[in-house]
């Protein structure tokens, strides 16, 4: 059993870790995801050899990523979110009373060389990690892990409307953070 895991870790551990890190953007969570994947893999015995071990393990990992984000989401106090009804004031930073933009969005100067590209992605990474934890968890699930909304609502135990509101806030915050921190070329 331990030999199996040892082999999986040697052959696929780095790949699984990078896969998890790409979708969780947190080294500790990514390590947890690999660990949970290994635990599930030895318990399941479902490897049939008709797919590669890597494909099989990655399939398990995808579910574990959702599990971990659900935990992240649930562990955060509700005060992280303020109220989610339509009359809320959380968008006052972005719009005036009559619903006009306070700061009109400008498109980003997208990077046009490798160095800039690296800097841009670095800013994006920082901005994603600055999101309030609950918003980060749902945003990562939807826009990074590309989970179906139906699954997100079921896993996080929220209504579709709440999910749309939270995703809207996360995207608004993120694009603002990019505007402030990425000046481009």
């Amino acid at each position: 059993m331990v030999d199996n895991v040892n082999n999986w870790l040697n052959d696929h551990g780095d790949y699984l870790y990078r896969f998890a890190l790409a979708r969780l953007r947190d080294p500790h969570l990514a390590e947890d995801a690999v660990q949970e994947t290994m635990l599930a893999a030895i318990k399941s015995n479902s490897f049939k050899g008709d797919s590669s071990a890597r494909t099989w393990l990655t399939g398990i990992l995808k579910h574990k990523i959702i599990d971990l984000q659900r935990k992240q989401f649930r562990e955060q106090p509700i005060s992280d979110l303020i109220d989610l009804d339509a009359s809320d004031t959380s968008m006052d930073d972005f719009f005036d009373q009559s619903g006009h933009w306070l700061d009109k969005p400008q498109t980003f100067n997208m990077p046009d060389n490798t160095l800039e590209q690296k800097q841009f992605l670095g800013v994006l990474d920082t901005c994603m990690n600055k999101l309030p934890k609950k918003l980060k968890a749902i945003f990562m699930l939807r826009d990074v892990h590309e989970t179906d909304n139906e699954i997100i609502c079921k896993e996080l135990d929220i209504t579709a409307t709440n999910a749309w509101v939270m995703l809207y806030r996360a995207r608004m915050g993120l694009r603002k953070c990019l505007e402030l921190n990425w000046t481009g070329a």
Binding site: N6, L9, G13, D14, L16, Y17, R18, E31, V34, Q35
Partner: peptide, 12 residues
């Protein structure tokens, strides 16, 4: 980017 030796040991 690699899974650290520490992390591997911990998982085992």
């Amino acid at each position: 980017i690699q899974l650290s030796t520490d992390a591997k040991t911990k998982i085992l």
